[in-house]
Design a binder for these strands. Structure first.
Length: 577
DNA sequence: GCCGTTTTCGGCCCGACTGTTTTCAGTCG
């Protein structure tokens, strides 16, 4: 049983207990454990001392997890389900509905699921309950509608488009002194639920009124002196929370609303050891009432005698356990030297080799690789060996014409369903850079798909595996592949693994990247651009890599071209150390 | 249920907003 399924059962247990009115700290403890399981880079059954190794998992939860691993079931959960309708927990997903309300609806009106809830709302029974009223009933109905029609989480790229428009408008507003994006957006999580914005201003009412008047506002969800929440309909329909603070509070508030929640809990605990109190408005000394304002987040961490921790690392995934010299110096956009996965009109791209090279040059890159699809991928106009030779001539011409940038001749070659590669070695060895990918037969079993990938990696002319798990966020699960074996083989053969920056892919993801780094596997971050604009998506790959704690040295694309080429040569010759 | 520079008990982040109340409970992040 994989971590995700175990985590889901523990979450379900927490939901059930919460609905029963169980102690909220106990419920929280199970939730924290479930998150630790989800985020663990190691499969539960591979932990040496068992689940208790995970932060937030103690004796009790460890026993619960062990029972799930051993039997696939959980006695305690079965018993709770016998006492409470099993369709109750999903109601907690309705925005505005918490455990107390759900429990009341169940006790007083016999609501056991979504259908009954909709019925009692229609019958007007909800507003008659003590503590309820017409507005509450209307809000619940609204919450149900929202839950049904909106995905739970949006792609980072879509949320960014909305966030940056709002940020730009706020910057034009005369009362706004500072404005930054926070939340999981700032931490570059692959998907986000809402957009958090922090604004420094002396006139929150005026700024709020500018926001509320935006034509895209579909609904004002919250409207207070310090905060407004808006439902906007732009690139995507999404909730935007804006916090207003005084300028001297800006840094602590930004830090607070950057999160993660788990990271903040640790920061607060840390402050407590100095006898200080932390809120979003600052760090205070309760004895002297003294307040510590900060110019930068680095000052804030300094104050707590901690090294600066980048937003992408603020997940309570071990960032507090490192002192300054052991904390990774995350790679930056400036470190990035060249994109090694892109398509042109030769296959399914929209631009020429030269157009792609010019765009890369403008971005300050030193090199790129043209990697069109191979012959068997007919839907994408895959190239034959003959086409590749002709394309090489065009690439040579571009290299002669342009200075300061080198275009490598590459290919994104299909790994065929039977495990064979789409080109023989004689073709591959003529190319500067060979990517192998799985684009077909996703439904194969784990062993078959894994072997396809291992076979490709063992070929000395294959340099990199693209988007290794094949997942598409919100669209397609990863194919069944044994990533332990893939990592092992990548290590042994010196094959590079990709972090694909396409916002639907971000594949490898943050957790796999961190594991790859620990295993000493080289990563390449590429956009898989099918147009010049596609190269802009690199920020999401770099953001994901930063979440995976990657440093410049871990990433092929930060190296000078000579070093890249000698690395590829070494794989070919099998001379990697 | 978890945890420990307050260490095996007693806390566990804490403030904003809404809708119901008429001083507060519930939800959210």
């Amino acid at each position: 049983m994989d971590n995700k399924r175990v985590a889901n059962m523990v979450h379900e247990l927490a939901d059930m207990m919460e609905l029963q009115g169980e102690n909220s700290f106990k419920v929280g403890a199970y939730r924290k454990a479930a998150r630790a399981i989800e985020n663990s880079r190691v499969a539960l059954h591979e932990l040496e001392k068992g689940p208790i190794e995970l932060n937030g998992v103690g004796k009790g939860t460890a026993a619960v997890i062990q029972e799930i691993l051993d039997t696939g079931q959980l006695q305690m959960l079965q018993e709770l389900k016998a006492e409470l309708p099993p369709e109750l927990p999903p109601l907690l997903k309705i925005p505005g509905l918490g455990p107390k309300t759900v429990h009341t609806l169940y006790q007083s009106l016999g609501v056991t699921g979504l259908n009954e809830l909709e019925t009692v709302i229609e019958e007007g029974k909800v507003k008659q309950l003590p503590g309820f009223g017409p507005k509450k009933e209307k809000n619940i109905a609204e919450g149900i509608r929202k839950m049904k029609e909106r995905p739970e989480r949006y792609l980072l790229v879509d949320a960014y488009k909305v966030a940056e428009i709002i940020q730009a408008r706020l910057r034009e507003c005369p009362h706004v002194l500072r404005v930054e994006l926070g939340g999981s957006l700032r931490r570059m999580k692959e998907t986000v639920k809402d957009i958090d914005v922090v604004v420094a201003t002396e006139h929150p009412k005026e700024v709020a009124s500018v926001l509320k008047k935006m034509p895209e506002v579909a609904d004002v969800i919250n409207d207070g002196d310090r905060k407004v929440s808006l439902q906007v309909e732009m690139e995507i329909p999404i909730q935007v929370d804006v916090r207003f603070v005084l300028p001297h509070q800006f840094i602590t508030t930004l830090h607070h609303f950057t999160g993660s929640k788990e990271h903040n809990v640790r920061v607060r605990r840390r402050a407590k050891t100095f006898g200080w109190k932390v809120s979003e408005y600052g760090i205070f000394d309760p004895e002297t009432e003294e307040e510590h304002p900060f110019e930068t987040e680095k000052d804030l961490y300094d104050r707590l005698d901690l090294p600066f921790i980048a937003p992408e690392m603020r997940e309570d995934q071990g960032e507090f356990d490192r002192d300054e010299k052991d904390l990774p110096k995350l790679l930056t956009n400036e470190d990035y030297q060249g994109d090694l996965h892109m398509h042109t009109r030769w296959s399914d791209g929209t631009a020429s080799v030269k157009e792609m090279a010019l765009t890369a040059q403008k971005r300050g890159y030193r090199y790129i690789a043209i990697t069109d699809h191979s012959q068997s991928l007919k839907v994408a106009g895959g190239l034959t060996a003959e086409d590749l030779k002709k394309q090489r001539e065009e690439i040579n011409a571009v290299n002669e014409e342009l200075s300061g940038i080198t275009v490598l001749a590459g290919v994104e070659m299909d790994i065929l369903p039977n495990g064979q590669l789409d080109f023989p070695d004689e073709v591959l060895k003529e190319l500067d850079w060979v990517i192998a990918s799985v684009h077909t037969a996703f439904q194969q079993d784990e062993d078959t798909i894994t072997k396809r990938m291992l076979q490709a990696m063992e070929n000395p002319y294959v340099h990199m595996i693209a988007h290794p798990t094949g997942r598409l966020l919100n669209r397609r699960e990863p194919y069944r592949v044994d990533m332990d074996r893939v990592f092992q083989c990548a290590k042994e053969t010196g094959t590079i693994l990709e972090c694909n920056s396409n916002p639907y892919r971000l594949d490898l993801n943050d957790a796999y990247l961190r594991r790859a780094k620990e295993e000493g596997i080289t990563i390449a971050i590429n956009t898989d651009a099918h147009s010049p604009q596609g190269m802009e998506l690199i920020r999401y790959g770099i953001g994901t890599a930063r979440r995976g704690w990657l440093e410049a040295k871990d990433v092929l694309n930060t190296w000078p071209l000579e070093k890249v080429l000698s690395r590829l040569q070494a794989k070919k010759e099998g001379t990697l150390s």
